[in-house]
Design a protein around this nucleic acid. Structure first.
Length: 605
RNA sequence: GGGGGUGUAGUUCAGUCGGUUAGAACGCCGGCCUGUCAAGCCGGAGGUCGCGGGUUCGAGCCCCGUCGCUCCCGCCA
């Protein structure tokens, strides 16, 4: 009773043969006489036919079949009669005349129809085992599998070793909130689930494994987004005796292989590059989508002495720790047609990112002929108008948007506005998949809340060789610190960061200095990172690596909106699983065994 | 922690200014039907309007609270 193959594999080459298939009833069309059933398995559909003249008894049995019943059918593969082929099915030229039917299981009425679009996600997640039967989910997870296998094959062929690292590890400062696991045998102590295998992969380099990779589950207890789950998967890799160029080249070869295998086309290499500085200047964000032709223009100098006080004040302000004020413009060609209502909506939009407003000028004609329509244009001198025009290359028919504030607010609000305009007005052009490297990230960022520096990438990222001197300058001025660049790089696809990495610090003195700059005292560093610092003392090779966010990568390549659609059993925005009802309360005994007491009274469920 | 959206039949949705018995499509159940593939035709069942409270002669609709789902900010590489 062996299966002849998957439904979708039954084609003309099997004509005249008896085949045995297993599958689910995808749909039935009962004509009273002949009965058609689309049998479904993970591969797809094939039509099976019950004809009363061929097998009266089997035909009688088939009357009782319903959607999602599980069947074994045996029958003859035949060409469909002329005019009844179905071009929508891969197997549409043939059908199976059933001689034997075995009902393996029945099914209740489904909570939703598998072929219906737009079923609420809550229902889908509650019955995920049914949702996963749908062809779209089958396609998504099979695609994800292909990406993973291609990654494994490519990295294996490049000499990488797949090595697992612990899921029960220790909590480390920096980064995201940890998921904690209480230790029963060590009362009052906790493991943390790894936010990434970062430290372990560095230890593997120090141990001489030279090239490591892992498709690793990572955990971060932060609030969720469409592209953020509390547990997610990284393609994690690390290499010894390399520079950033080597890691990036390797990453490109992996991406090219994925592209070839999964998308079916060659990825043009090398992937273009931008420095962080360029990205922020032109696009306002560190993950720009280059399919969008709009760019930001800096008008800070031109507006330094303007009579328009909103701009002048913005330029003048020195934020805390010298974050400069800035005026930037975003030119939208043809945008003079935008309505007042649309402009108001964009004004509300930029306020999300801290902008106080959104100044604009519509170029209905040349400024010399009073063709500029704007609430602010009256404040500008002719020289300022001309400076704006020439810097932005604005033409009649365009609209200019302006941001004036601290640099971070101007960049983020105009950067996001650029993305939104690109989407709203369908400005994206060129290759549907646009990769770009962003390099030379700052090493450190000032955190106003904790009044200290934090690592932009992570505390083990090496500074650029040219900038290392700044770090070691005794009594160094802090303004220099902000300008130190790191050997970190992000890979961006269609405006989303899909991977990032860096060359790591392998010099114990430099690592200690780095931790010091982050405000981690030597004693604390020893307690929290002592094992790494010690390892660096024992012949640590130069090394670096990177990690790709598998969920995001797969989602973008498939063109789906949410990474939940490429994860078999995802969690909701409140980090719950609607299928299993996790998380849940546990009974008092379990808590007692773990030496835990909760301050939260159990709510009624 | 904050802002927006949303919750009505199994599913997707409609439901007027607060007014009589809450509708449609698909699905489901029964019948008819021998070439369909969104099968067709006839008939039928199916509702805690998320939950709790309030206003009102009267609430799916208004108010307060609460829960779930979702998008975003903060947070998070």
């Amino acid at each position: 009773m062996k299966r002849s193959g998957y439904c979708n594999e039954i084609r003309e080459h099997l004509l005249g043969q008896q085949v045995t298939l297993f599958g689910w009833v995808n749909s039935r069309r009962d004509h009273g006489g002949v009965i058609f059933i689309d049998l479904r398995d993970r591969s797809g559909l094939v039509q099976v036919v019950f004809n009363p003249e061929r097998q009266p008894e089997v035909h009688r049995q088939a009357h009782g079949l319903r959607n999602e019943y599980v069947l074994l059918v045996r029958g003859e593969v035949v060409l469909r009669p002329a005019e009844t082929e179905n071009p929508k099915l891969a197997t549409g030229k043939i059908e199976i005349l059933v001689d034997h039917l075995q009902l393996l299981n029945t099914a209740q009425q489904l909570p939703f129809q598998l072929d219906e679009e737009g079923v609420g996600e809550a229902t889908r997640l509650q019955y995920r085992f049914l949702d996963l039967r749908r062809l779209e989910m089958q396609r998504n997870l099979q695609f994800r599998h292909r990406v993973m296998q291609t990654t494994r094959r490519t990295l294996d062929e490049a000499g990488f070793l797949e090595i697992e690292t612990p899921m029960l590890t220790r909590s480390t400062p920096e980064g995201a909130r940890d998921y904690l696991v209480p230790s029963r045998v060590n009362p009052g102590q906790f493991y943390a689930l790894p936010q990434s295998p970062q430290l372990f992969k560095q230890l593997l380099m120090i141990a001489g494994y030279d090239r490591y990779f892992q498709i690793a589950r990572c955990f971060r207890d932060e609030d969720l987004r469409a592209d953020r789950q509390p547990e997610f998967t990284q393609i994690d890799l690390e290499m010894s005796f390399v520079e950033a160029e080597d890691v990036m080249a390797l990453a490109e070869s992996v991406m090219a292989a994925i592209f070839q295998e999964a998308v079916g086309s060659a990825l043009p290499l090398p992937i273009p590059r931008l420095t962080y500085k360029e990205a922020m200047a032109r696009y306002g964000l560190d993950a720009p989508d280059l399919r969008n032709p709009l760019q930001l223009v800096d008008l800070t100098e031109a507006m330094r002495h303007t009579a328009f006080s909103v701009f002048a004040q913005a330029v003048k302000q020195e934020g805390s720790r010298g974050e400069r004020g800035m005026v930037k413009a975003l030119r939208l060609p043809g945008g003079a047609q935008l309505t007042r209502k649309q402009i108001d909506e964009y004004t509300e939009f930029v306020k999300i990112y801290g902008a106080k407003g959104l100044a604009w000028i519509k170029l209905n004609g040349p400024w010399q002929e009073d063709g500029w329509q704007s609430p602010i244009v009256k404040f500008f001198t002719d020289a300022e108008k001309e400076a704006i025009r020439s810097a932005t290359a604005a033409e009649v028919g365009d609209i200019l948007f302006f941001g004036a504030d601290r640099a971070s607010i101007v960049n983020e609000s105009l950067g996001r506005l650029r993305v939104k305009l690109g989407k709203d007005l369908q400005l994206l052009q060129g290759n549907p998949f646009s990769f770009v490297w962003v390099t030379e990230f700052p090493l450190l960022d000032w955190d106003n809340e904790s009044r200290r520096h934090v690592a932009v990438h992570h505390p083990f990222t090496a500074p650029m060789v040219e900038d290392r001197g700044e770090l070691e300058r005794p009594g160094m001025e802090e303004r220099f610190l902000d300008e130190v660049r790191s050997q970190a790089y992000d890979l961006v696809l269609n405006g989303t960061e899909i991977g990032g990495g860096s060359i790591r610090i392998h010099d114990p003195q430099l690592q200690a200095r780095m931790l010091g700059l982050l405000g981690i005292a030597a004693e604390e560093a020893e307690e929290k990172f002592g094992f790494l610092l010690r390892a660096l003392d024992y012949g640590a090779p130069p090394h670096g690596g990177l990690a790709f966010g598998l969920d995001r990568l797969v989602a973008i390549l498939l063109g789906v909106e949410s990474i939940r659609d490429v994860i078999a059993f995802p969690k909701t925005q409140k980090a719950g699983c609607l299928l299993t009802q996790a998380p849940s309360y546990v009974d008092a005994l379990q808590l007692r065994e773990l030496y835990l007491r909760t301050t939260q009274v159990q709510k009624k469920e």
